[in-house]
Design a binder for these strands. Structure first.
Lengths: 145, 145
DNA sequence: CCTTGTTGGTTACAAAAACAACCATTAACC
DNA sequence: GGTTAATGGTTGTTTTTGTAACCAACAAGG
């Protein structure tokens, strides 16, 4: 082990982002996993529906940038566990309108509250400036593609 | 679709981080994938060895926080393709010293240069302040566990 | 030495993700 | 209307990952 030099790959943005994302996601993941047996994809679908109310799989895909197969399977599992209902559109029978059930709503509210607390905890390790700029920069990067 | 409210989950740090990480990693991923048939784990091992010279799997694990099975498998595949050599330690025959071959070094230098350019491109979409604070904050978050 | 515990690394098997091909429906256009 | 293309969503198959059990080499203590 020797050799370090000028461009520190530890500063390579995609690498740093991954490390931070992985590390910061872990604790929250354990909550939705242990408490509701959910996968990350499922949690994401849940929260999109919780946030925006009724949506179609396609709309979720647009917002989350998740691939449609992931969404399809997440929706299936959530439907199996009665966290959401699928309602075929009358005008276009390919389309399904998804909405949370009461149980789904409850899970959403619970997890959302956990998320909120957890976010506050993460934020607390950063200064106000860091928080503001960080989110702003991440937002830019996220919609860079 | 209606319903938005006070704590915007789009601002939830782990979510934002993931989106940014995924989006920002994509283009670079295509390079090491198409050009060398590498996985992310393999690229990471490669770059640790390129950065620090000879290392053991364990040391890579400590620095990268990757799980040892991932490293083990990445090392295997890199060894198969003659990107690195494994050299058993004489004093402790459990330990293997890993080092890049000439081909490995070449791949590393190539990818590193691509990474460098790509990082510059990403940085260009942000202000100086954003760049500075972003990296600083990510660094803190990454070693928060 | 001989048991018991650790440690570096691998392997086996289950869970999850990626990718492509696939239905069924609707839209477009002749 | 009939044919072809596009769209919303699903399914099948292959890669990758996660988890745990494992093996061989060493370490510690008696």
């Amino acid at each position: 082990m020797e050799k370090n030099d000028d461009f520190p790959l530890q500063q390579f943005l995609p690498y740093l982002l991954n490390q931070a994302a992985e590390e910061s996601g872990l604790e929250f993941q354990r909550v939705y996993k242990n408490r509701y047996g959910m996968l990350r994809t499922e949690w994401r679908v849940l929260f999109h529906l919780g946030m925006y109310g009724q949506m179609t799989a396609k709309e979720i895909g647009q917002r989350s940038k998740m691939h449609k197969t992931k969404i399809s399977r997440a929706v299936q599992r959530l439907a199996d566990r009665r966290f959401l209902t699928r309602d075929t559109d009358d005008k276009d029978r390919r389309v399904e309108h998804l909405a949370l059930t009461t149980a789904g709503e409850a899970a959403y509210r619970d997890l959302r509250q956990v998320a909120e607390k957890y976010d506050a905890k993460l934020s607390a390790t950063l200064s106000d400036e860091e928080n503001r700029i960080l989110r702003q920069a991440l937002w830019k990067l996220a919609r860079m593609g």
